[in-house]
Design a protein around this nucleic acid. Structure first.
Length: 564
RNA sequence: UGGCCCAUGGUGUAACGGUAGCACAGCAGAUUUUGGUUCUGUUUGUCAGGGUUCGAAUCCUUGUGGGCCAACCA
């Protein structure tokens, strides 16, 4: 064994979050020799960026400390769960870059759970209650008023055992009775006032079919599932903190592996909503095209929007883990994707709002194929050629007849560099009968060609362009934030805060020829415009690109300031 | 007015009784054939009162503010 000259790792110096501190202490004290975590979604919807935080946390912890992390579906409520969601969840976890040690289901443990329920019943710690939900609610009391027992609380264990069996055997209709744990009706913690363990639902389960008509409640499944899997650190969000005493109670009464629950603050993002209920509404009521609409905060939406797994993992890292309620500025997410794509995305020319530009002193039939870099951040990315000719398209906003101060794009009498090509000087404009500019007229400086510039000219502005004869039509979808307010959830009706301009479709944008060979999921930077990716709707005949995020635009800010 | 959790710049997050730091955002400048990138500089903070201590963001206490909990949801 070579003696270690291992350099001090940054990791060991990096500050730990509170869960890492707990884990390191558990490892140091010998409480655990390795850790086991789990990501436990209910398959009743698509995963969103908040789940991504949990996934990165659970899988990340396992990776960091040499432990294991399972994916476990919390499929205890057959009426809201579907195979479609099961499939999408695993796909999203994998896309994020994590492979579960095991893929498991709470429903794997239904038999074991039933046996354990019998154990508690036998010990007089659970009973079958035939009261109506209304009666039980009334008898539960309130946080300041202790509950009172229902008449069924003192049924002898043998009788309860028989009753439970009859429940299981389907002898009672839905809602006829429930199994409750017998704990403490006066507890200030409402979860301890004889919580439900089983309810009757004659419903087909997506995995167990019709085998069961009683299904365990969350509290009677989660901790037990954790324990069965020997989960050492069961990490969940803050709203489950009041459940912890119950989580511990079941484990203690059963004398099974003592998993421990720890709670952290869930992720919130500005200008979006995160609750599955609200996201479901957006989908079902047609405000978005589906769970994977690029404006959705779902993993599948972000993926379609052009976010990369790396950017999302980086984001999860940067937001940290703590117990304080938070709302993360979406600009941090945007920073993460820009940072990633800036390094990797090939640059391409595209003109979203075309304006014709004619170089009057350039030969009519001439075409030059000019070299331009694929990515200035990455020399390995190499070069490609783009066609240059007498008639071009430039971006409409790159020309102004009456430029404001500090505008250094094109204007009458002004000069600008056409990226990777020539410097041109605007000599005039053509207008239609309505006074609309139909073309910008320029003369070019032949000795100013990029890479061989002997003109000695210096210009402030460089703009992108496309040769009119070679430009290809593409559909470009411009996405903006879904909501107009920072925290839509705090609105009376969050749907009223929807941004009416969150999607703008440009059916006739123009792109350079190289973009015809694109595949769905490809990422690009459209030079000077932003990062875009190819949508699944894209075909060779009609490419479709989604704008992931704009480039930072300090000129837009400056122009805005001038307007104010 | 029950129980539990939380409180550090605009937003997050560190500081584990000893100089309040980092990131994003903002602002200013340099570089730039992307008004991008990169680099430099910079504005802004310990909820309040009391206590312990040589020393408190940190410990204690009271208050204030916020969040969660009384689904046959998870």
């Amino acid at each position: 064994m070579a003696s270690s000259t291992e350099p001090t790792r940054d990791e060991s110096k990096a500050p730990l979050n509170f869960i890492e501190e707990i884990i390191e202490e558990d490892l140091r004290s010998g409480r655990h020799s390795s850790i086991q975590t789990r990501f436990p979604p209910e398959p009743n919807g698509y995963l969103h960026i908040g789940h991504a935080k949990s996934i990165c946390l659970n899988f990340g912890l396992a990776q960091k400390y040499g432990g294991k992390c399972n994916l476990r579906y919390d499929d205890t409520n057959p009426t809201s769960e579907e195979q479609e969601y099961v499939d999408s969840i695993l796909a999203d976890v994998r896309w994020l870059g994590f492979e579960p040690d095991q893929v498991l289901y709470a429903s794997d443990y239904f038999d074991q759970l039933y046996e354990w329920a019998r154990v508690l019943v036998s010990k007089g710690l659970a009973y079958v209650d035939f009261s109506t939900p209304e009666e039980i609610a009334a008898q539960k009391g309130s946080p300041t008023v202790p509950g009172t027992p229902t008449p069924y609380r003192n049924t002898p264990p043998e009788e309860n055992l028989a009753l439970l069996e009859r429940m299981k055997n389907g002898e009672f209709p839905d809602g006829h009775c429930v199994l409750r744990a017998k704990i403490d009706l006066a507890s200030p913690n409402m979860h301890l006032r004889d919580p439900y363990m089983y309810r009757i639902k004659h419903a087909r389960h997506h995995r167990t079919g019709d085998k069961w008509c009683i299904y365990p409640m969350y509290d009677w499944a989660h901790g037990q599932s954790d324990s069965i899997e020997r989960v050492t650190h069961s990490i969940c969000t803050l709203e489950f903190a009041p459940h912890r005493p119950l989580y511990d109670w079941f484990i203690e009464q059963l004398g099974i592996f003592p998993s421990k629950q720890y709670e952290f603050a869930r992720l919130n993002l500005t200008y979006t909503v995160m609750s599955k209920r609200k996201l479901l509404q957006l989908v079902q009521q047609g405000y978005v095209s589906g769970w994977d609409d690029p404006r959705m905060p779902t993993i599948s939406g972000l993926r379609r929007r052009g976010y990369t797994p790396e950017s999302i993992r980086e984001f999860a890292q940067r937001v940290g883990v703590a117990k304080r309620e938070n709302i993360i500025d979406v600009s941090l997410l945007e920073f993460c994707i820009r940072e990633d794509l800036n390094r990797r995305a090939p640059r391409r020319f595209a003109v979203l709002h075309p304006l014709r530009l004619v170089i009057t002193n350039y030969p009519e039939d001439q075409v030059e194929w000019l070299e331009t870099e694929n990515n200035p951040e990455d020399p390995q990315a190499g070069y490609r050629t783009v066609p240059f000719s007498r008639e071009l398209y430039i971006e409409r906003e790159d020309f102004l007849e009456n430029p404001p101060p500090k505008y250094f794009r094109l204007y009458p009498g002004g000069m600008v560099r056409l990226k990777s090509a020539y410097i041109v000087e605007c000599t005039g404009v053509q207008k239609d009968d309505y006074g609309q500019i139909t073309a910008v007229l320029c003369r070019y400086i032949p000795e100013s060609r990029s890479g061989a510039d002997t003109s000695g000219l210096k210009v402030r502005g460089t703009i992108h362009w496309l040769s009119a004869a070679h430009a290809q039509t593409a559909e470009v979808r411009l996405y903006d934030r879904l909501f107009q307010v920072e925290d839509p959830s705090s609105e009376e009706d969050f749907k009223k805060a929807l941004n009416p301009n969150s999607l703008q479709i440009l059916p006739n944008a123009l792109v350079e020829p190289a973009l015809l060979e694109t595949q769905p999921g490809d990422h690009f930077q459209f030079t000077r415009l932003g990062y875009f990716c190819t949508d699944p709707d894209s075909t060779p005949a009609k490419p479709v690109f989604n704008r992931t995020v704009t480039l930072k635009d300090t000129w837009a800010k400056e122009a805005q300031k001038q307007r104010n």
